[in-house]
């Protein structure tokens, strides 16, 4: 399978700060690759190096078999970029931005179609748009080019769950059309939902590259259940349960990986209240990658 992105030993140091410290990434053509890491891990720095906004201290970045810096101008005909916090020209309307991108190879008809799908009015000036609509415009501009590679830096950061869903749908659709998608996120469930593979970065270093199945096995939940009647603690010692704690008739259960065996047991009881929360990325990192 030909590769779209080939990064070797990429380093970007700002004085003594090693924002990115020797990462290797290989992304195949047509793949949706998640770039997962907590805030400050080096995701945005790596992406800015890929986009040639900043220059690496060392290492090599090849995109579509071309050098990301030397061939930057040519490459950008085939790359679209979407940051998490889209900043565009306040005095321009959405249509002005579309026209601008059209003059560099974007397709206006695709932009109009996307705007319709996202329910975005292109006649409104950028500074009058809500943060969600600003991000929608960013999505329109990124996708109107129908690029070979989409680079997205936390694209759903400012979006509500409904818009996140629409964005995920559009990204999956792009992937189906053969576009390679490189998406950074600190949201595990987002990455699980749309990506084929995930690179995990922590403190500027790649900790692991996992396929999505392996990552799902590393899911952690905290289940808090309050019962109507008495319960047997032993009933909940099922596969996937890592730790059980009882406080005043309420069980706090930590799980790793599959949660269904526990839910089946809970379903046998009458419950007063039930809360299930995902572990934070930091907790997962500490559990699985902390010692690496």
């Amino acid at each position: 399978m030909p590769t779209t992105i080939e990064i070797k030993n990429l380093k970007k140091h700002f004085g003594k700060v090693k924002a990115v410290d020797g990462i290797d990434i290989s992304v195949e053509r047509g793949e949706i690759f998640g770039f997962l890491g907590p805030n400050g891990a080096g995701k945005t720095t790596a992406i800015r190096c890929m986009m040639d906004f900043i220059r690496p201290t060392a290492g090599e970045i090849k995109i579509l078999d071309k050098d990301a810096q030397a061939d930057s101008e040519v490459l950008k005909s085939d790359i679209s970029y979407l940051p998490g916090n889209v900043r565009l020209y306040d005095s321009w309307t959405g249509l002005d931005h579309v026209n601008f991108c059209e003059s560099f190879g974007g397709k206006k008809s695709a932009a109009r179609e996307l705007a319709k799908q996202l329910d975005l009015d292109l006649k409104i000036k950028f500074h009058h748009l809500s943060s969600g609509n600003k991000q929608k415009l960013g999505i329109v501009l990124a996708l109107m080019k129908e690029p070979k590679l989409l680079i997205l830096d936390e694209p759903t950061l400012a979006l509500d769950p409904l818009l996140q869903n629409i964005t995920h749908h559009l990204l999956l659709e792009s992937g189906e059309k053969g576009t390679t998608v490189f998406i950074s996120s600190h949201n595990l469930s987002e990455v699980e939902r749309i990506c084929d593979r995930v690179g995990i970065i922590k403190a500027g270093k790649m900790v692991a590259v996992e396929n999505i199945k392996n990552l799902k096995e590393k899911r952690m939940h905290t289940v808090t259940a309050t019962f109507v009647d008495n319960f047997k603690l032993a009933d909940f010692k099922v596969p996937g349960v890592d730790k059980i704690e009882e406080i005043d008739g309420t069980l706090i259960i930590k799980t790793k990986g599959e949660i269904n065996p526990l839910l089946s047991e809970l379903a046998k009881y009458q419950l007063k209240d039930l809360e299930i929360s995902h572990a934070t990325l930091e907790e997962i990192f500490l559990e699985f990658y902390g010692k690496r």
């Binding site: 906004f53 101008e73 950008k76 931005h97 601008f100 991108c101 501009l141």
Partner: peptide, 16 residues
């Protein structure tokens, strides 16, 4: 203002 990211994302070199 951050708008440089739009300019650097389109196929035009920094020189141009």
């Amino acid at each position: 203002k951050g708008t440089i990211e739009l300019l650097l994302s389109v196929p035009i070199s920094r020189t141009k």
